[in-house]
């Protein structure tokens, strides 16, 4: 099995593993960010260029460095490969550049965006972007459109990761949506705004890294960090039925698939992705529909965990503390809210 060195960490991985997956096996800060790659979607990745890494040594046999930065999500490791991610200034610079490009036409409407708080672009901007925007031109705009009665498309926010296109291609039948137009005017769309009618179409919401595809049953109901995620399941004859419920008080505001540490739909025991059907997602909004398993684990770095569970100092938050944390100039400014001050929301 090939042995690869990433940022001075060595790991032995199975044949055919990509650099990104090898880095994920090591974990920690050396994992390149990925906006378009999705492990359960075949052929995804390679588009967003945020996961570019430097290959200092191609392999033990051919130790020449690769001439350009390579997308780690689509480059397989070779034995003796030496990869630099965060430790290469070139990679850091390139990533900041890509982040800037992704934000050139992004509306930065986080205060009114339902994805804020669980948005990968916010995380990316916060972790790899620059403080100021250098683009002073008008952003390209589209009108939001309804794709069916359950999904809303805000093309302005889209970063064209093609994940939703791959979902419709691979886990639903009869794809009716794709990319039309080209260049920075390319847009995700259905042909003549046709609705996506399919039992699994709601998964496009889960794979969307930004707020371009949102759940119309949840829109504007609550900020995600005021809701409490709970793992639950039910017997469903269409899908695995393993979901995450997002409570506010006694009410279930929305239902999503379970996500792993990289924001992807978590794998089931059998190794397949836990996609959920539209019935589970949109119809079952009563606690009596579900068997509750317990609170969902939310990563420490997420703003969602900030207000419900533990503060970085280990102090438990009550409801009053939650109010306090949302005050302007509060001390609890958490990561993941991107260019906007979370306290303004």
């Amino acid at each position: 099995m090939p042995i690869v060195t990433i940022d001075d960490f060595q790991i032995e991985v199975p044949e055919g593993t990509t650099i990104l997956n090898a880095a994920r096996m090591i974990g920690g800060d050396l994992v390149p960010p990925a906006m378009c790659y999705y492990s359960s979607l075949k052929g995804s990745g390679g588009y967003c260029r945020t996961c570019l890494v430097k290959v200092e040594q191609g392999s033990a046999k051919d130790p020449r460095p690769m001439p350009k930065l390579v997308p780690s999500c689509r480059t397989t490791v070779m034995d003796g490969m030496v990869v630099r991610n965060e430790t290469s200034p070139e990679v850091v610079e390139a990533r900041a550049g890509v982040t800037e490009f992704l934000l050139v036409n992004h509306p930065l409407d986080c205060p009114v965006c339902d994805q804020a708080g669980e948005c990968h672009l916010q995380d990316l901007g916060y972790e790899h972007g620059k403080l100021n925007t250098r683009s002073e031109f008008r952003r390209r705009t589209f009108e939001p459109i309804d794709i069916g009665d359950k999904v809303k498309l805000h093309m302005n926010r889209c970063i064209l990761c093609y994940r939703c296109v791959k979902v419709c291609e691979q886990i639903t039948d009869g794809r009716v949506h794709g990319v039309i137009g080209r260049g920075d005017h390319a847009e995700i769309s259905t042909y003549i705004e046709q609705a996506i009618e399919n039992d699994f179409s709601g998964n496009v919401i889960d794979v969307c890294p930004v707020g371009a595809l949102t759940d119309r049953t949840f829109r504007f109901k609550s900020r995600v960090w005021y809701t409490k995620p709970v793992e639950a399941h039910r017997n469903c004859d269409k899908c695995c039925g393993k979901v995450r419920l997002w409570y506010k008080g006694e009410e279930i505001l929305r239902v999503t698939a379970r996500k792993d540490a990289y924001g992807e739909v978590a794998k089931l025991e059998n190794g397949e992705a836990g996609w959920i059907c539209n019935e589970c997602r949109f119809e079952k909004k009563k606690t009596s529909d579900w068997v509750i398993e317990g609170p969902a684990h939310i990563d420490d770095h997420s703003v969602i965990s900030a207000h419900h569970y533990e503060s970085p100092e280990g102090e438990r938050f009550g409801d009053e503390k939650l109010e306090q944390a949302a005050l302007p100039h509060g001390e609890k400014v958490e990561r993941g809210v991107g260019a906007l001050n979370p306290n303004n929301v």
Binding site: R49, V98, N105, V179, R182, G183, D184
Partner: peptide, 18 residues
């Protein structure tokens, strides 16, 4: 080049227009 960029990968899609 702005007009002809395919829009698949971000540096070219956004950079050419910029």
């Amino acid at each position: 080049y702005h007009h002809e960029s395919c829009g698949q990968c971000s540096p070219c899609r956004e950079g050419t227009g910029w």
